[in-house]
Computed example of a mutant assay.
Amino acid sequence: MPTLHIGASATLARYVLPRLLADFRARHPAVAVALYPANSAQVARALLRGELALGFVEGPERLPGLRYERLLFDELVAVRGATPAGPPAAPLALPEALGHPWALREPGSGTLAVVEAALLTHGVRLADLPAPRYFTGNEALKAHLLATPGALGFLSRRALMAELVSGQLEEIPIRGLYLARPLAAAWRTGEVLPLAAQQFIRLCDLSCDCLS
């Protein structure tokens, strides 16, 4: 049985690809799929080394030697631990938001790359933040926010739906901070994709409008 090796960043691996993988397996039961979750930079490096047939990545970075095909757009939001019975959070100006402790994904993640690019449009660097904390994985970052009053975290809305609906976390709009990002498939430039990878890309093209 042939195996299709796919790498995917955290948001895509947990919140986008499972539905597509289930559909693919139903359509192509003779193909096994191995999914390797990692951050976007790690997925890109594995593609360049030839360890994966396909990668699914977040954020703006585009590496030489890889071809990218946009699947859909995603939105990052700023959140904090919710105040019990408190009023809805008022929007913050960026200088006010910078006064809070920030919780961010680790270097190499597409999430951090988007936050960094958005800050640079305002002349702010990550090094300018007051003692930011970095977390490997969405769940560790959310746990920190729940345990640390006043901390601001930045994650995909897709990764936060349960906590926002339950009221554990609340969204904090930050005026002027644009945090949309593309989610994309990637593979090595000039490489003839295996048939299974071609079939998976076609399925993504057909399905992603339903996932937006």
Score class of each variant (00 low, 15 high):
residue 79 V to D: 00
residue 118 A to P: 03
residue 75 E to I: 10
residue 53 A to G: 14
residue 104 L to N: 12
residue 7 G to Y: 09
residue 175 R to T: 15
residue 105 R to P: 01
residue 160 L to A: 11
residue 52 L to R: 05
residue 43 V to M: 04
residue 113 A to S: 12
residue 35 L to P: 06
residue 143 A to I: 07
residue 17 L to Y: 00
residue 61 E to L: 12
residue 118 A to E: 01
residue 25 R to H: 06
residue 50 G to H: 00
residue 150 G to I: 05
residue 94 L to D: 00
residue 159 A to F: 10
residue 114 V to T: 15
residue 106 E to F: 00
residue 11 T to N: 04
residue 205 D to E: 09
residue 166 S to E: 10
residue 59 G to R: 03
residue 26 A to K: 14
residue 112 L to E: 12
residue 76 L to N: 03
residue 73 F to R: 14
residue 7 G to I: 03
residue 212 S to I: 11
residue 192 V to F: 04
residue 83 T to Q: 08
residue 212 S to Q: 12
residue 123 G to H: 08
residue 126 L to C: 13
residue 12 L to A: 11
residue 140 A to Y: 10
residue 196 A to G: 04
residue 157 R to E: 10
residue 120 L to A: 15
residue 114 V to S: 06
residue 91 P to V: 08
residue 48 L to S: 09
residue 118 A to C: 04
residue 11 T to S: 15
residue 51 E to K: 13
residue 181 R to H: 15
residue 46 A to Q: 14
residue 172 I to A: 01
residue 175 R to P: 10
residue 39 N to C: 14
residue 207 S to Q: 09
residue 41 A to Q: 12
residue 175 R to K: 09
residue 165 V to H: 13
residue 150 G to W: 04
residue 156 S to M: 06
residue 85 A to Y: 01
residue 22 A to E: 08
residue 168 Q to I: 00
residue 193 L to V: 13
residue 61 E to I: 11
residue 24 F to P: 07
residue 85 A to D: 13
residue 139 E to C: 00
residue 96 E to A: 15
residue 181 R to N: 14
residue 32 A to W: 00
residue 90 A to K: 11
residue 42 Q to A: 15
residue 100 H to K: 08
residue 141 L to M: 08
residue 1 M to G: 15
residue 119 L to D: 05
residue 174 I to H: 14
residue 167 G to S: 08
residue 174 I to E: 02
residue 190 G to Q: 13
residue 55 G to H: 09
residue 43 V to P: 00
residue 14 R to A: 07
